[in-house]
Amino acid sequence: MDATTVVGCFRDRTILVTGSTGFLGKMLVEKMLRVQPDLRKLYLLVRAPDDAAAEQRVLDEVVGKELFDVLRQEHGDNFHSFIKEKVAPLAGDIIHEEFGLDSSKIKQLYEEIDIIINGAAVTNFYERYDVALASNTFGTANVCQFAKQCTKVQMLLHVSTGKCVTARYELCYSA
């Protein structure tokens, strides 16, 4: 499969991304917006108390980064309208069933989402076990449960880090 085929997979698709504020997530969002501007919508699920805080977090921690300078130059004065049209921040968390979203929003997502990319995880070696387990294990199960409810979903991509296994290893062998 060549790059053109992969890029074509995102054309006219609605995509849910978790973990977009992380290192890999930011690069993924930027790359998708740059190489496939014809994607329909990118929903970015971020931990935030409300939609306004989610939007601000995405603006500060994702699209506000230097990584997006190429897109900023490409779109010039239309950059913010392009982002507003393509990116929809969602205030939620994978540790909760249905991500803690209200029923009308979750129903809308069930009907719209074509692709899910789950990159949310706790990668801190020193995080409490229950916190890491909630995100890295139960959170992934919640994403899978969500995907089963989506009527149009064509793909669920789960991205994991080696740190998840290492954290488990440290826990199993700690004194």
Rank of each mutant, 00 (worst) to 15 (best):
V153A: 15
G100E: 04
A175Q: 11
T21M: 06
A88P: 00
D69T: 14
V6F: 13
L109T: 02
D2I: 12
K41L: 02
L157T: 13
L133P: 00
H158P: 02
R57C: 10
A88C: 11
L59V: 12
Q154I: 08
A167H: 08
L16H: 09
K107R: 12
V7P: 01
L156G: 04
L109V: 03
I116L: 11
N124D: 15
G25L: 00
L16D: 01
Q149W: 01
Y173S: 05
A91Y: 04
P49H: 09
V153Y: 04
R47I: 09
D130N: 13
G19N: 11
Y110M: 06
V87A: 09
F68A: 02
R72T: 05
T18Y: 06
T161E: 09
G100C: 07
A52D: 15
A141H: 10
Y43W: 05
D60W: 03
D50F: 06
K86S: 01
L67H: 02
R34I: 09
V159T: 08
F99C: 13
Q36P: 01
N136R: 09
I116G: 03
L16T: 12
L157Q: 13
E98M: 06
E97Y: 01
V17Y: 01
A48C: 07
K163L: 13
L16K: 11
R47P: 00
C164A: 11
L24H: 06
T4D: 12
K86A: 00
Y173M: 05
Y173R: 11
A141G: 01
T140N: 12
V122H: 05
L42R: 00
I115F: 11
G8P: 03
G22R: 00
C144P: 00
T21V: 13
Y129V: 15
I113M: 03
M155D: 14
L156C: 09
H158N: 15
L90Y: 07
L28C: 07
A54Q: 05
Q56S: 13
T14F: 00
S160T: 14
K148E: 15
G76A: 11
G100M: 02
A167N: 11
I116H: 03
V17P: 00
T137S: 13
A120W: 05
C9T: 08
L39M: 14
